[in-house]
Design a protein around this nucleic acid. Structure first.
Lengths: 97, 97
DNA sequence: CCGCTTTATAGCATCGATGCTATGAGCTGG
DNA sequence: CCAGCTCATAGCATCGATGCTATAAAGCGG
């Protein structure tokens, strides 16, 4: 718990920096998308190699994506979504008036 | 109408090519996102210069984005969404069982 | 007509994702 | 024990988005 609050304090300091909040959000998004793709893949009982074939990329690219270490591009997300029979939703949602 | 069906036929042929469907979808998404950002900006009575300031980019980058000629990256979308007080939603939606 | 604002476009350097190949670790079944 | 599979990581070249500056066209108010 001590580490947790230390990290929280550090993160808040970093977030106060210009652009940090967006950078963090993009990294978190990458991580979540990676997890979602892995979950959908495993639901189908597919290996990374199998998904790579369907999405026209290599197994190592799938592994890298699922690890969430990089922020993916939209075309790659489209290919993965199509391969998994899912739909990629990207939208700017204005706040309710 | 004649041109329309010609274009439709050509598009279907192009779509049959591997990767074309995804590339088209990403390009269409870029175009729609550009339009959405312009609409949100104009709702606020903002100029491109004003939005650029809020999103920490230059006016020409905003113009280029709104034109939809390039597929934007997620960090840029995050910055624009935050600047406009909107929320960026990105998700892989699995088909209903 | 002029100054200002707004928008669009061009050109160029940079950077990070992507594509690829290779490789290693771990696990499993034979 | 070994082959095969799966997954993760590394390294490198390529490519396209991004950042930036500059510039031009259009419109508007004075």
């Amino acid at each position: 718990m001590g580490e947790r609050s230390d990290w929280g304090a550090l993160r808040e300091r970093r977030m106060a920096e210009p652009g940090a909040a967006e950078a963090y959000a993009a990294t978190r998004l990458a991580y979540e998308l990676g997890r979602t793709v892995r979950a959908l893949r495993e639901e189908r009982g597919w290996s990374q190699t199998r998904l790579a074939e369907a999405a026209e990329m290599t197994q190592s690219a799938v592994a890298r994506f699922e690890a969430g270490g990089t922020v993916p591009t939209l075309p790659v997300l489209e290919r993965l979504a199509n391969a998994l029979g899912a739909e990629l939703v990207v939208q700017l949602r204005a706040p309710a008036a």
